[in-house]
Computed example of a mutant assay.
Amino acid sequence: MPISKDFKSIYSKDWEINFTQCMPNGFLKYTDLCNLLQLTAAAHSEIGGISFSDMQEFNQAWVLSRMRVEISELPKWKDNVTVKTWINTLENSRSVRALEMYVNGKKIVGCETFWAVFNTEIRRPEALALPFEHFELYPENKATKKTFSKINLNNDTEMVFEKTVALSDLDIVNHVNNVKYLEWCLDFVNEKLILKQKIESFEMNFLKELSLKDKVIIHENLTSDVMIFSITKEDKTCFALQLNLNLE
């Protein structure tokens, strides 16, 4: 679709937290937090003329490569939240996008995301086929205190689960949706850490796509205040997650 007359390089969207998005304690699930952030990014790309529908004319889609989320507190059921987003960098096949979530004007979440343009036919990255010069870039305006870091997967890990990818795990790009990886791993975290909001930040690396009926293994490595999960297929790492805990 053409660029909207309402397009701005810094975009905000309001959401109301509904009960289907909440944990038993009434606070927003970490997975639904990621969904809201990504839906806001998608809405911004749509009014800016680089949405999934626009890109599919060239067999392209944005796919998430890395994501860092810093949380001071989670919103709860019936809260009205505002998600603000802008682009730090955008060139060729890569883009870094910043997002923030606010409740009553107070910032509660900061997020940095790294996206790649992906050809959905040949399943490889390639340069964006659409014009994007109308997006003003804000390389110095960071949403998080820290930027992406390398997740250390060299330590010994323990296998916790084997899984076969099901149809319900897939998204419109026909691979496992990025939030599904997070959901799989969080199912093996002590529920008290989640319900008491002890996760102060987390980082995800998406390394290789997974498809229907792929057989994967979930591994974990635990220290006192850091939990690292990895997902492998045929001994190759497809995904890594680091949870940073505040145990005070």
Rank of each mutant, 00 (worst) to 15 (best):
F188G: 02
E91S: 06
S45Y: 09
E73T: 08
S9R: 10
F188V: 04
K29R: 12
L33P: 13
D235L: 14
L193P: 00
L182Y: 13
R66H: 12
C111L: 04
L207T: 14
L207W: 10
A127N: 06
S9V: 04
S93H: 07
E183W: 02
M204H: 06
E200F: 08
Q56L: 06
L243M: 12
T144V: 06
L28N: 01
P131G: 13
M67R: 09
S9D: 06
Y11A: 04
T82F: 04
K213I: 08
K76Q: 09
V189Q: 06
M55N: 13
L167A: 02
E162K: 15
I47H: 11
D156R: 13
A240N: 12
Q197N: 15
N177R: 01
M101F: 10
E183G: 07
C34D: 02
N80S: 09
T120R: 01
E126M: 00
L210H: 02
W15N: 05
F118P: 04
D14Y: 05
K142L: 15
T85V: 01
N119C: 05
D6S: 07
D32Y: 00
V226T: 07
Q60C: 04
N190E: 09
I47N: 00
K145P: 03
C111H: 15
N246S: 14
H219S: 06
L210C: 14
K29A: 02
E126R: 11
V81G: 05
N178C: 13
V83A: 09
I231H: 10
I217R: 01
N152S: 09
S224F: 05
M1V: 09
H175T: 00
N205C: 14
Y102D: 01
C22Q: 06
E220D: 11
R94V: 00
S230H: 08
W115Q: 03
N80G: 11
N190M: 06
N25D: 06
I151E: 00
P24M: 05
K150D: 05
N152Q: 14
L186N: 12
T89G: 06
A42L: 01
L193E: 03
P139N: 09
T40F: 11
S65P: 01
R124D: 07
L241I: 15
A127W: 04
N119Y: 00
E73L: 11
F7T: 10
C185R: 10
I87T: 04
I172A: 09
F114D: 13
S230R: 14
S224Q: 12
V83N: 14
R66E: 07
D6A: 01
T40N: 14
N205V: 12
K163G: 01
A98Q: 15
R94L: 04
L37G: 02
E209W: 04
